[in-house]
Design a protein around this nucleic acid. Structure first.
Length: 310
DNA sequence: AAGTCGTGGAT
DNA sequence: TATCCAAGACT
């Protein structure tokens, strides 16, 4: 959960997860649908699929015990170089070289590595290897990560409070706050779509499950047109993607959502269906949306539709 | 090996 | 409002 996600955001999800699936075997026996629903809102949903797959591999074909070897760990789904090293050091108490975003930043400043990321990573890894102790390696990793999270922060680092100030080359050169250097990001393209908010007579709303992989893979969605880089007219959208033959009423405003590499502007149209509409999908009551694997963007669309359509 | 993959908090 | 970025992994 903590991969690319802050502790404060993870906390409530983690506690809910651990309460619902206290053991590896519990998680392995859960359905992917339930795991995705519990993950909804956390983002990077491949992590949930990988975690579930990982639990099943360890529980069913690995006799219920994680391997303790770093390379074996890294072969499990969702466990990459960092996580395998962190598990080796923190869970199993053996030396391993772990470099996360915090450690990367601390080392880039400590040794004034001015090369741009990601090219500088191989150099930073050599520095990390040289510093990583044999004894209490897990504590070392967590100490450096905490230094990065509290004092050696991305912007306005608290160098005056830093216990490493005397040996920090970045600080001595006045570069600390500017490191590590990153290549400029290209601006995000904007994609457009129209979502179909279908309200059945009994108050249920039509949802669909997205394809198992890719963007929001396996999650539920409000039916919509494809997301493309041009506007849709209502006629175009209905012809291309309407889930039912209904009278569609455009709702005011736009739902804007920012993904990692593009921005989505969605308009919402509403249609009222009879008591037994022939649409493929899942009808879900509005007061039971918590049980659905709805990513934040879809929750936004529903909130918008309820606000302007009901 | 660069692109893909979410979301919310901080600034 | 715009930008950055977080206990990265996978393709």
């Amino acid at each position: 959960m903590l991969q690319q996600t802050t502790v404060s955001v993870v906390k409530p999800y983690f506690h809910a997860f651990i309460t619902r699936w206290p053991t590896l075997a519990d998680l392995a026996q859960a359905t992917l649908e339930d795991v995705l629903a519990a993950w909804a809102g956390l983002g990077y949903y491949a992590r949930a699929r990988n975690l579930h797959q990982c639990a099943q591999e360890v529980a069913f074909t690995g006799n219920g015990t994680f391997p303790t070897d770093t390379h074996a760990l890294q072969r499990l789904p969702g466990i990459g170089a960092y996580t395998a090293a962190a598990m080796t050091a923190i869970a199993f108490g053996r030396r391993a070289v772990a470099v996360d975003g915090n450690i990367e930043r601390v080392l880039a400043r400590l040794f004034a590595v001015t090369d741009f990321l990601p090219a500088a990573r191989s150099h930073i890894r050599i520095l990390a290897d040289a510093l990583t102790p044999e004894n209490r390696c897990g504590d070392f990793i967590q100490a450096v990560m905490d230094l990065g999270a509290t004092l050696c922060t991305p912007r306005q680092p608290a160098c005056m409070l830093c216990p490493l100030q005397r040996e920090c080359v970045g600080f001595q050169q006045g570069l600390a706050a500017t490191l590590p250097a990153r290549a400029g990001q290209s601006p995000h393209p904007i994609h457009y779509g129209i979502a179909f908010f279908v309200l059945r007579k009994d108050g249920a709303v039509l949802l669909r499950r997205r394809p198992p992989k890719g963007l929001l893979g396996g999650m539920m969605e409000v039916p919509s047109t494809p997301w493309r880089d041009d506007f849709w007219t209502l006629e175009e959208a209905v012809a291309a993607a309407a889930p039912l033959s209904l009278e569609w009423h455009p709702l005011p405003g736009t739902v804007r959502h920012v993904f990692t590499h593009f921005r989505l502007d969605m308009r919402v149209v509403m249609g009222e269906a009879g008591s037994n509409p022939a649409a493929r999908g899942i009808w879900s009551a509005l007061d039971r949306m918590d049980e659905q694997a709805l990513p934040s963007v879809m929750r936004k669309i529903l909130v918008h539709a309820i606000r302007f359509g009901m």
